[in-house]
């Protein structure tokens, strides 16, 4: 089962875990990405996330389908939040459930790495003295 979602509402690790539990699953790896309070020593006030939603959903589905095909995952859940996020808020949750634990780690790492490379979602860091689109410039 694949669950892919982008929402402005808070996302929840328990809900994501609930989507991938199954009697045939032996291990679940969950990655939770949260908003950090600083970047290179500079205080971050909040983040603003924006997505090109239809394509982001399509790319997140491709990631989940690859995980099912290559790592024989039983269930994959990828949820990303957009809008204004405060420090400690959860930006992304990825849960990968597999019959055996080893591939769950690998597949979950593949998912977050590929999401950061390909999925059309952008974050802006808001500082006390300005704001910056993350990773835009070399």
């Amino acid at each position: 089962m694949i669950s892919v979602k982008i929402s402005e509402e808070k996302i929840n690790p328990t809900n994501s875990y609930g989507e991938v539990t199954d009697p045939g699953v032996g291990g679940t790896v969950q990655f939770v990405g949260t908003v950090r309070n600083q970047t290179k020593g500079k205080k971050v006030l909040r983040l603003e996330f924006e997505a090109y939603e239809s394509m982001a959903i399509k790319e997140m589905n491709k990631i989940a389908e690859t995980i099912v095909a290559q790592w024989s995952a039983t269930h994959v859940s990828i949820h990303h939040r957009v809008g204004t996020l405060e420090i400690k808020d959860i930006a992304v949750i990825i849960s990968v459930a597999t019959p055996h634990r080893k591939v769950a780690f690998e597949a979950c790492q593949y998912a977050i790495n590929t999401l950061k490379e390909r999925v059309p979602i952008w974050k802006k860091e808001i500082f006390e003295d300005g704001e910056v689109w993350v990773a835009a410039h070399p």
Partner: peptide, 10 residues
């Protein structure tokens, strides 16, 4: 045509 600058999700 969608203009996609460097992505930074996650």
């Amino acid at each position: 045509v969608i203009v996609i600058p460097p992505v930074s999700g996650g």
